[in-house]
Design a protein around this nucleic acid. Sequence first.
DNA 1: TCTATTAAGGATATAAAATATCCCTATTTC
DNA 2: GAAATAGGGATATTTTATATCCTTAATAGA
Lengths: 162, 162
Amino acid sequence: MILKSQVEWALHCCAILAGLPAGRYLSTKALAEFHGLPKEYLSKALQSLSQAGLVDTTLGPSGGYRLAKAPAELTFLDIVEAVEGNARTFVCNNIRANNPCRPLGYCESGPCAVARIMWEADEAWRQKLRSVRLSDLIETLSRDIPAELWKSSFEWVLERAG
Amino acid sequence: MILKSQVEWALHCCAILAGLPAGRYLSTKALAEFHGLPKEYLSKALQSLSQAGLVDTTLGPSGGYRLAKAPAELTFLDIVEAVEGNARTFVCNNIRANNPCRPLGYCESGPCAVARIMWEADEAWRQKLRSVRLSDLIETLSRDIPAELWKSSFEWVLERAG
DNA sequence: TCTATTAAGGATATAAAATATCCCTATTTC
DNA sequence: GAAATAGGGATATTTTATATCCTTAATAGA
Ligand code: SF4
Ligand code: SF4
């Protein structure tokens, strides 16, 4: 059970977009080049962000993506769910219905304890991701990444932003 | 990102095994029939439980599986990880290494903030599963399931336990 | 107006993982 | 000795993830 690599891509891309000056856009091409990713496939991840309303887009030369909200208004969960979907990791196949002892016509009322517990674990995962904002990530990254690299990356992006 | 259905199977089987009288075993055949599952494939899940040391097995007629520990000593996480593995859901492909601005020979020190946050969410999921014991599940089920069905299921199992 | 560039999205191909079955072996019970 | 069992290797099928290709409509700038 592993998340799509697009989740990582989307998170990185949002982190880059967060550093974009207001009103500017960054293209798929630039984002793919910066991260060393296949442009066409990364495009699908960015489309997911767009469909989820997390980013704004514009067409034409100098077109591309920018965040639709402030980094403090975007959570990890928003980004992860945009790409990965919001389905639960545990799906109940209702195997209890096969119990040979079950009275004919007996109908279970809602999910059993197994499902409820697994879903609570899913919710704990979501809650953690919901508690971290994109702005928190930027703050941590700015502390972790050498100032020199941080600066040159910022300039690299700015040169290509439309 | 969905858990294998074997996770559900393993949890259900452990719940059944928890009701087995001390020293008795229940076969794959009986567990498969009770849950309406493919015997050969369920067998793989039970083998996983066995390899993880969660259940004891014995061969021959009247052979099968029983819990290796008391239900209070078995957590959901034990069972889930036995079947699903203990890998993290977020794998870091180190795409930051492709950053064109990165100084030659520059070597990152450990996982970045993105990976750390995603791994914390994984840990929150695990922590939740670790906090629920098999005995807790049995207790809840015994309250949820109609007494009649609970009793007949118990008898069904007992008839087939070696 | 014309050209280049872009996001969106449909179609399709490839690779990997989950699901499922089959068969053989060693062990145990009777 | 015969029947039943877990273990496990080999293999097939189905589903999902990964990746590429191509067409369309919008936009910027010459
Ligand atoms: S016991 Fe729970 S998880 Fe299992 S089939 Fe029933 S509802 Fe689903
Ligand atoms: S930024 Fe973090 S998650 Fe992304 S590649 Fe680097 S270490 Fe991995």
